[in-house]
Each structure stands twice: as C-alpha cells, then as structure tokens.
C-alpha cells in the first residue's frame, strides 16, 4: 500500500438554495483516524460522500486537496451502515467484487487471506443471508481491505450492530486499518472516543475540535479518560458549540 495522504476538505454546500454548511475546513490527517460527529442533518455524510466522489443532492463549492497532490479518485474505499454485500454472491465473490467490477484479475488467494484476517475463515462459500449481522459487517471490512486503498471512508459502519459486536468490530477495524487515512462519520461519542486520533464535532455553525486523551486508539471501553472524553462530546452534542 502506498503512503496514506492527508486530506484538506474546504468549502460550502447548499441544498435546494439553503446553506447546509458554510466555509468549513476539515483537516483529515494522513495515516490516522478522524471521527466526524454531529447531529443528524448537519451534513456529516455529505462531507464524506463529496470526498468519496459520490453523488450528493447538494451543490458543493470548494476543494479537496490531498497532501501528495494526487486526486483521490480510485484511492478511497467506502463502508456504510449497510454492509452492501450482494445477496446473490458468496462471501468470497463479494470480497472480490471490486476486481470483478473493474474487469481486473480476481485474486482469490488474497481474498481468502482477507476473509481469514477478519475472522471468517471457513465461511467463504456462504451467502450473506447465512451470516449474522456482525459477520456480514466483517465481510464488508474484508472487501474494504481487499481494495487496498490508502483512504478509507466509513459512514456509521458499526451503528446497526449490537453493543458487543460493535465493540469487537471497532477493535478489528482499528487494527486492520492502521496507517491508513480514515474518516469515520458517527453518531456515537463512545465510538469516537475509542477510535479517534482526532475527533471533530460538526455544527451548523462550523467545526469544533475535541481534545483527545493522550493514549493512542483503540482505547479501552472503561478507560477513565476515554469515558470523560465521551461525556464531553455528548455534552457538546446536546448543548451545542462550547
């Protein structure tokens, strides 16, 4: 994998003539996890979609600059709340889908290795309907790893999972996506407190950086500093910018 670049996202977006966010500058550090929190409808997912180069219903004026000066096109991988595994394909074929869709050579051996890395060895031939919610999201993670992109965009990928599975998945993702530039959009302050190198709360008025504990992620779920940071974030989310 090539070195993961930093990304600077700056600009304004409007939806049907009304401003969604105005002149924000978001610095996403290379090789680190940046969590973007905020109330619903503030535009977090829109920011992620614009960086991913996906269609969004908004009119965006601004720029996205990567530290290595190259375009982000074909350098991002995307994971959403829904695992987006194709129900008609086996897990192995789902993990290989990127190469299939591009017409590239399908590296089955590497795909089997990725499946094994996410703890799903032996499930390669199963259809998504035969897997649990947590296993499906692991499958989606294996597919993301298979793409081997330096920039990973995660749009609430763990929010539909139960508490235990979510905690397991957070640790697994943090371990496997080390050294990549990760932008995680989440509603969950606990998740942001555990996983972020830097956490930013997005308000309708702008961005607010949160002071993170000195310990590196992944932080323990019962670590006092993590819990204090989580509480601080929740307070900001409830009471607005401070």
């Amino acid at each position: 994998m090539i070195a993961a670049p930093s990304i600077t996202f700056s600009g304004a977006a409007e939806f049907s003539g009304a401003p969604l966010f105005d002149n924000i500058t978001l610095e996403i550090k290379g090789g680190e996890w940046t969590c973007l929190l905020g109330p619903s409808g503030v535009g977090k997912t829109t920011v992620l979609r614009i960086i991913a180069g996906l269609d969004s219903a908004v009119n965006f004026r601004g720029k996205i600059i990567s530290s290595d000066g190259k375009t982000l096109q074909n350098r991002t991988a995307y994971m959403a709340q829904n695992d987006l595994l194709f129900p008609w394909l086996t897990l192995l074929d789902n993990v290989c889908i990127g190469a299939t869709l591009r017409g590239d050579h399908v590296e089955k051996t590497r795909a089997i290795e990725m499946i094994s890395r996410v703890g799903l060895a032996g499930h390669e031939g199963k259809k998504p309907s035969q897997l649990s919610g947590g296993q499906r999201q692991r499958g989606a993670l294996a597919r993301t790893l298979m793409e081997d992109r330096p920039v990973i965009l995660l749009d609430e990928p763990f929010s539909a999972l139960d508490a235990k599975t979510r905690a397991d998945m957070q640790e697994l993702a943090a371990e496997l996506l080390t050294d990549r530039t990760v932008l995680l959009v989440t509603h969950d302050p606990a998740e942001a407190a555990r996983l972020s190198h830097q956490a930013i709360v997005m308000h309708s008025t702008g961005l607010q950086h949160i002071d993170m504990p000195a310990t590196p992620p992944v932080r323990g779920i019962d670590d006092p500093q993590t819990l204090a940071t989580q509480g601080k974030m929740l307070k900001i989310l409830r009471e607005g910018p401070q």
């Binding site: 991913a52 995307y78 869709l101």
Partner: peptide, 27 residues
Amino acid sequence: SGYLDLAQTMAATQSRELWHIRMRAAM
C-alpha cells in the same frame, strides 16, 4: 443506491455494473 455507491468507489465500468449489479438486482 448503496450498491451503486459501492460500485462507483470501486471504479466499476458501466457495463460490468449493469451486468453484475443492476441486472442481478432487477431479477
């Protein structure tokens, strides 16, 4: 739309997206 988003980030060709995703999803 999530399937199409995924295909787009994976730089799928239009014909392969049609064959492997849109047609399969429309069965």
